[in-house]
């Protein structure tokens, strides 16, 4: 671990380190002594935002030592590889960038943020998560939403967006909206803009969905962060069906999609608290899909209706 980097995720700047420098580039992390690159095509950098060397746009905090969270660098310890390498996966920059999702998610949890396995889409200013285990058809549903209603849906993040919990109902766990720190003390490393974030401040914006570097094989991204409007839990079945779940039906499926390294029971408890907040804050639908695009049309009619003139 020779080189320290910083990465901006959901309004916070985290220190991190990598075995493979290519993993840093894949995640848009920058050596801590460097400034982030200017906007592609030149021009002045807008205050508080920059476009990274790839085409991923990630919100940044102030680029100074004070803005970096005072935590140990997020890093994949060598002894951890064996827990994450499955099938024919090998140690590489690509697998490191992928596995680090869990460690970044755990580092974000004290700040009421986490990484979730979902496609995050944006519709009429609100974010919607389509969540399911791999291979169920999240990306397919998102593609059909865009195809059936051209121009209405954008993608915030194609694989693992970051949730920020700003609920005023949970002030002890969500000072993120006030200062970006954990409940016990203010944190000078938090983003100075997070509590003034217009996205966070609008509506009863309890949960904000942020883009992340993990955009899936399609590399879907581009839409900015938005307050969460709801969740669609996707499963395959014998027929197309849509059901609005009660919170106690939605809690466990939500838990299973929040990413963590599954090491520490305190993290398990925090994940459960975030899953509860998610299930109790926004509507959660279960979409059983047998055939597309019929299941997508069902979703459009009930969850994303077009107002009739």
């Amino acid at each position: 671990m020779e080189q320290l980097y910083t990465i901006s995720l959901a309004g916070l700047t985290l220190p991190c380190a990598f075995h493979y420098p290519e993993a840093a580039r894949a995640l848009n992390a920058f050596p801590s002594e460097e400034k982030p690159p200017l906007l592609a095509g030149g021009g002045d950098r807008p205050q508080g935002r920059w476009r990274g060397s790839s085409d991923i746009c990630i919100r940044s905090s102030e680029r100074s030592e004070k803005s970096i969270l005072p935590i140990p660098p997020v890093f994949l310890p060598p002894e951890e590889w064996k827990y994450f390498l499955t099938g024919d996966m090998t140690e590489s920059a690509g697998s490191e960038a992928n596995i680090l999702t869990a460690f970044f998610s755990e580092a974000l949890m004290p700040y009421d943020r986490c990484v979730i396995h979902a496609v995050a889409i944006r519709w009429k200013g609100q974010a919607w998560l389509i969540s399911a285990p791999s291979g169920v058809g999240k990306s397919t549903q998102a593609r059909y939403l865009q195809a059936l209603r051209p121009g209405e849906f954008d993608v915030i993040c194609g694989d693992r967006p970051i949730l920020e919990f700003c609920s005023p109902a949970q002030p002890k766990t969500s000072p993120a909206c006030r200062g970006g720190g954990p409940a016990s003390r203010p944190v000078e490393g938090s983003s100075p803009s997070s509590h003034r974030d217009p996205v966070c401040a609008e509506a009863s914006a309890s949960i904000i969905v942020h883009p992340s570097p993990w955009n899936g094989k399609e590399r879907w991204h581009g839409a900015p962060a938005a307050p969460l409007g709801g969740v669609i839990l996707l499963e395959r079945g014998e027929e197309n069906a849509l059901k609005l779940l009660k919170p106690r039906e939605a809690g466990i499926p939500a838990y299973l999609q929040i990413i963590h390294a599954n090491r520490d029971t305190d993290i398990l408890k925090k994940t459960a608290a975030l899953a509860t907040a998610l299930a109790e804050t926004v509507p959660v639908w279960k979409l059983t899909t047998h055939q597309v695009p019929d299941s997508t049309k069902l979703l459009l009619a009930s969850v994303f209706p077009t107002p009739t003139l």
Binding site: R248, N262, R263, A272, A273, A275, A279
Partner: peptide, 21 residues
């Protein structure tokens, strides 16, 4: 060891960490 009892939406749930899993 490694199992946590948590509440998810007021439902008691047992969750193991990766060793207990």
């Amino acid at each position: 060891p490694g199992v946590a009892l948590v509440s998810i939406c007021k439902e008691p749930v047992l969750i193991p960490n990766r060793e207990a899993y």
